[in-house]
Computed example of a mutant assay.
Amino acid sequence: MKNSRGVCALIVTIGAMVSIPQLAYAGSDDGAASAPDSAQSPARSPEQIHVQPGVPRSSQPALSGKALDAHVLTQLKQRFDAADTDHVGRISIDQARSAGWGYLVNHFSQIDKAGRGTVSFDEIANYMRGMGARM
């Protein structure tokens, strides 16, 4: 008898879990119950990134390997050049802070091993490679 009550409770629980989503669709504007349109809202796993409707998909293939490494290095160089407002090939901690480059600000003393108060792009890239970045 005890096992049959457990089985009944399990069946009721499963039935409720199956019925609740159906009840949500029963309250639609036209009063008719309807299931979601799978073409409009495909099932997604939690690991997928949600892209807002209307955002165009990239026509470029995803980067990987050496192409990705080169892209990261280019992006890093562009960020360095934007922070190097005096165009001398070195930036100070204040320039990094003004550029919103928190990572560089937080690690500035480790990158500036010579204690000059400025760092070059190569010093930043070498530090990041030493920390495991592939560039």
Rank of each mutant, 00 (worst) to 15 (best):
P56G: 04
A114I: 01
S64P: 02
R5P: 06
D37R: 03
D94Q: 15
I91G: 05
I14P: 01
S41M: 10
M128E: 13
P46I: 00
Y103G: 15
N3R: 15
D94N: 15
Q52D: 10
A24T: 12
A133R: 15
D30M: 01
D81N: 05
G100R: 05
L104Y: 12
S58C: 05
Q95Y: 07
H87I: 10
Q95W: 08
F121E: 06
I124C: 02
M17F: 10
M17Y: 06
F80S: 00
R79N: 08
P56F: 06
A125L: 09
V51R: 03
S34G: 07
F108A: 00
I11Y: 07
S120V: 06
S98A: 15
N126Y: 09
V119K: 03
G130M: 02
R116V: 13
H87F: 08
K66A: 15
Q52H: 09
K2A: 15
V7T: 14
Q95G: 04
T118Y: 12
I11H: 04
Q75Y: 05
L76F: 05
G132T: 04
G6C: 14
A82D: 02
S120H: 05
R5L: 15
S28M: 05
M17N: 08
L68V: 06
H87V: 11
A125H: 07
A9S: 14
R129H: 06
P56W: 06
V7H: 14
R44N: 02
C8R: 15
H107R: 11
G89N: 03
M128N: 13
D30H: 01
G117T: 10
M135T: 13
V51H: 02
P53D: 04
A33R: 09
A83E: 01
D112G: 00
M131V: 12
A35K: 12
Y127R: 10
A35W: 14
K66Y: 07
S59Q: 14
A26G: 11
V88S: 13
M128T: 11
